[in-house]
Simulated scan of single mutants.
Amino acid sequence: MARRKRHGRCFAAVLLTIGAPAWERAKADDRPVTRVATIPIPSASIFIAVDGSAERLVGMHPLSRSAIEEGVLGRMFPNARVINSSIAAGGADGFMPNVETLAMLDPDVVVQWGDRGDDIVAPLRNAGMHTALMRYGTEQFARDSLTLMGEIAGKPDKARALIAWREAVATEIAAKAAAMPDKRRLKVVYLQRASTGLVVAGANTYSDYYIRLVGGVNAAAELSGALAINAEQLAQWDPDVILLNGFEEQLTPRRIYDDPLLSGAKAAMERRVYKMPIGGYRWDPPSHENPLAWMWLAQLLYPDLFRYDLRKEIEESYQIVYGYRPSLSDIDSVLRLSVNGDARGYDRFTAVTPTPGHAP
């Protein structure tokens, strides 16, 4: 099947090379995996994407549920909205497993963080539950998580195709960005928290990875990890672009524009404050939709260099990953046009001419 020629890396061209997926994977006791519970926040959405269904997911973290409800995944898979989200105790940000609830759900496998200590793993082990551990925060860990979900779902080919898509897009973007002169590189700050206080992503964070991938300079690179800063520090960096996290649902660029100090920063003065999109999952942390996030950011920073038809990329990749053709309003929602629409350069993501036969 020939791909029509256009700028950018089409996911379809990658995924059409895979073989027929296996639907189930046998565990050590030879029973198929039919019931899965996921505690790490992104793992519910990643599993649904790899599996192409929410039918086998029986439990998730409450923040996984909020991402499904806020984004378009809940529209694609309405039954995902009613999956039990009380399997992790200790508050919305806690990862201590609620073993009593999990026992009631009787999962074949529970996915848990593998890099946050044994305290949150031991209760699962002691209860005799099959547990798969995932790590998080780097591009390699993101690929490993896809591999893990492919093994659990019995769909390793789907996972490999998603990884191949990442590799293709990252390679293409990195090649273009590498040729960019230093004087053109924009200073970017990603705010991991901004509603109350400011937390910035410094070096050795995933945000630092993709800011550098597309040719930007992380203005917070003098720091390591995610750290709290004050407004004075952010104003001193005077970034060209500010990215707002997708986790704080009520956060909008007004937070920056209305701040007495931050409103004088170059990013605010030039209306280059953007809230990260949310599709099948939030685009800012590692997930299966990161290639779309990289295209989005590359085009925002350097529209003359990166000319993706991002709306078409979303439409095509969603049909393949999820078996769902997003409507124009779905894509508007993914790109947060209602929040970002008046920001500089964001009109390039507005639908100009509806695709024939496309749902409004």
Rank of each mutant, 00 (worst) to 15 (best):
I83E: 01
Y318C: 03
R344L: 09
R143F: 13
P78A: 00
F349L: 15
A201W: 04
R311A: 03
F77C: 02
R336Q: 13
L198C: 12
F47N: 01
G357Y: 07
P97K: 06
D330I: 04
E232R: 12
D30H: 09
L16R: 15
R255F: 07
V188H: 11
S45T: 04
F306N: 10
E139C: 02
R184Y: 08
R3N: 12
A201I: 03
A44T: 02
K176C: 05
G94N: 09
V334M: 07
W23A: 10
T34N: 08
A153G: 09
G137L: 07
S327F: 11
K183P: 03
D284P: 12
A37W: 06
G150A: 08
V200M: 13
I173H: 02
L297C: 13
R25K: 14
A49P: 00
N98W: 15
L213S: 01
N204P: 14
P356A: 02
D330C: 04
D30N: 12
D259E: 10
R135F: 08
I83M: 01
G341E: 11
E70K: 03
A92R: 12
W165S: 02
D51T: 07
L261S: 14
S224I: 07
V109Y: 11
L227S: 07
Y136I: 07
L227V: 13
F47A: 02
I242Q: 12
P107S: 09
A293F: 11
A159M: 14
R212S: 05
A231W: 12
N340M: 14
Y324A: 06
A265C: 15
L337P: 11
I314K: 01
A177G: 03
T355P: 01
F247M: 09
K176Y: 06
A293N: 11
G128Q: 13
G114E: 04
R311M: 02
I314A: 04
I87Y: 06
A132Q: 11
L16F: 15
W294E: 04
G94C: 10
K312E: 03
A22R: 14
S207P: 07
V36K: 01
A161L: 07
R344Q: 10
M295A: 06
